[in-house]
Amino acid sequence: MSPVSLRRWGWIHKWSSLVCTIFMLLLCLTGLPLIYHHEIGHLLGTEVEPPVLSSPMPQGNVDAVIASAKELYPTKLPMFISQEADVPEIWNVTLADHMHDHDYKPIAVDARTTKVIEEPAFEGGVFMSTMLALHVDLFMGLPGMLFLGFMALLLLVAIVSGAVLYSPFMRKLDFGTVRKERSSRLKWLDMHNMLGIVTLVWLFVVGGTGMINTWADLMYKYYQRNELASILKQYEGKKPLPHTASVHDAIETARAALPGMRVAFVAFPGTDFSSAHHYGIFMNGNEAFSSRMYRPVLVDANSGELTDAPELPWYLKALLVSQPLHFGDYGGQWMKFLWAVLDIATIIILVTGLYLWLKRGKAGKTSTRIATHAHETSATPAFARSGEPS
């Protein structure tokens, strides 16, 4: 690599990493507890457990489940009902004051007895909801999501440029060498470089899926205005009729339309995942991958008739794949453990990168001159001695 190219890649890596480092550090720190959100929920007592019954019972009528939740808050409207694949004994009913209200009231209802179990803390309580909000949008909604998406893009740039710079850095050293006998600053530089190259693929995957996840709201809106609008052309200009159809029967209609699939959640008419005329019943499979891939079934909320069961477009499928992959939700406890270890390694990379920048001293002032003569050095290339993360 020529000295000019080396300087150019060094500049790209320096500024892309410096701009995004603080925010990436925040995302790593908040993402770590989110990897174990179920386990933390059990520890904090915010996870709802199904009551133990004296004898097995089949699941009850879903309309009775919704009615039990509404008895607690008669003026609120049902927004969603959902079931976790591993806890089919519980229906999670979400209520709100109106269809565009995001101040949700969750109610856990026994799917067998149709009786209310408890009112769980939304998003797992104050701690977990704070971690989630910071990780997703910095409490800023869509602007915060898009900002974090841009930071994730800068992270990808930093990863690529760091990988390019690593090759000349290692040409006189064994892979993963940490020169402990040299200065403290050089030791931290070697540690930074070694962890960066070892976690490169994981960082790229998590950064890329994180960036895709920040586009979720825009993707859903695009889907509603295009594919969904085309499917619902027959309802265009029509005033929504009363929602008199049974939710229980609508679910049975969806199960008949897609046999072998289970109900993940139901979106009520007027919410973001349905139309003003339909129950949006989202089905998924029972395998590790298919359980993350939803298939919507639209059932007329007045007549109870099936309207359509369309395949999701490719960009929503990509989103659905990226969401669990981002948090390591595919492979059980071992994958979660791997994700946690790599998350901690990334925190070390970010902290050492900041340390090297703050301690750059005279080397930072002379980095350009040294980079010009990098091809003449034997063990330590110019960008490394300048203290810029690589």
Rank of each mutant, 00 (worst) to 15 (best):
L44G: 02
L153N: 05
I66C: 06
A254Y: 02
A67E: 12
M1A: 11
D217V: 14
V201L: 12
E311M: 09
I281R: 07
A163K: 00
A384Q: 01
E252T: 09
M170Q: 14
V247I: 13
V247G: 07
H375I: 12
D249E: 14
A257K: 05
V201D: 05
Y104P: 07
T380A: 12
V19C: 07
I347E: 11
F273Q: 15
A85P: 04
L18Y: 09
L342H: 05
A121M: 00
V178N: 01
K14M: 15
F204D: 04
K115N: 13
E252R: 09
M211A: 10
R7F: 12
V87A: 03
T368P: 06
L173M: 11
T380E: 15
E305D: 10
V351C: 02
I281Q: 09
W314F: 14
Q83E: 11
T307P: 00
L153G: 11
P74V: 00
I12D: 04
H277W: 10
G176W: 03
A384V: 10
P106F: 02
D101H: 00
Y315L: 00
Y73F: 12
T46E: 06
K233N: 11
M1W: 04
V136D: 10
L173P: 08
A152I: 10
G141I: 08
T253E: 03
V201P: 05
K336S: 04
P242R: 02
T253M: 05
R225Q: 15
V247H: 03
Y330R: 08
K76A: 13
A340K: 01
S275F: 09
P88C: 07
